[in-house]
Design a protein around this nucleic acid. Sequence first.
DNA 1: GTAGTCATGTAAGACGTTACATGATTCT
DNA 2: AGAATCATGTAACGTCTTACATGACTAC
Lengths: 181, 181
Amino acid sequence: MTIEYAILGLLSWKPFSGYDLKKIISESAIYYWSGNNNQIYKTLLQLHQDGWVSQQVINQQFLPARKVYSITPSGNEALQKWLKSLPDLPEFRSVFLIKLEWAELLNDSELDDLLEVYLQELKDGLVIRQEENRREIKTGRSPRETYLWQKIAKKTISVFEDEIEWVEQMRIDLKTIRENQ
Amino acid sequence: MTIEYAILGLLSWKPFSGYDLKKIISESAIYYWSGNNNQIYKTLLQLHQDGWVSQQVINQQFLPARKVYSITPSGNEALQKWLKSLPDLPEFRSVFLIKLEWAELLNDSELDDLLEVYLQELKDGLVIRQEENRREIKTGRSPRETYLWQKIAKKTISVFEDEIEWVEQMRIDLKTIRENQ
DNA sequence: GTAGTCATGTAAGACGTTACATGATTCT
DNA sequence: AGAATCATGTAACGTCTTACATGACTAC
């Protein structure tokens, strides 16, 4: 389970409640999970049972009690071990690519429509990601960390920028192919 | 279920057996599923029940019977409808990015090791993808399709190339950050 | 009064992977 | 002798999402 370590990593930075984590995970592009309650609250229970996090219940006047989790020394050890473990290759999952593969079943204008709609979605998605990054210009605990965090942020937007460029080039090329027929 | 349509798309190209599909899906980068038996054989059963594919049993001398599936007119209709439907945004899932976010817990040489190992994995992965593309230089049924198929193939390798470049730039930058301290 | 935020949690189901099971042939 | 290929399928399990459930406060 990698969400286990994703949460552990966040708690190594600051203590958070399940509710906080849910927000972070559902709003950040690098955390590719939906950020649903079930997964987060169950994972926190698991982490607590493993002794990797400790829980502090904070009662509130008119609101439900907050359960704030902090990383423990053994949790930190587990996180370190994971950080040093063999990294996984990234996965680029594009259902659009699968659609494109069978685009021969579409006529020229249908394909154009598909590309246009996709392009618009990408551009909207890019704006959302750019706003997400602007909202939190995170300063790290060291120049090295600040650099890495900026590099991560830039990566999430460059994936979209590259995809937009790729589609735009495709539209140009398709026009040329049609003219040469 | 998108694997349903992924299989339907392949069958719109040529008839295939479950065994054939398993191979294609597990070896191709754009089909991001593992290509396990369970999923494929169950999906084919489903597609057959829906009347989207037809089955032809081919008995063989010393080998188990092959069940070859072909797309039906209603399957083709369903596929067309799917092709024209709203495309999903691509997902870039990188566990490495989550690791990098907490790399502050590693010292300089540990981070260097992580980057080096990751880079090596990426380079190995790139070679595998390049070989995959070289194995089948697919010619489409039209210049348009040939172009699209090449564009898809190039995309699967450019994702890796971009990632390699990104990591290499990071190594250079990290060296500079250390020297300026 | 309707929707959103804060805050927890559970139930049901969809989706995906690993591993098991069979059995003959062919390659090293 | 052992492993790989061809070819089907099932069982068990892990992961992930959607939807349900509660309840007070706040903003429009």
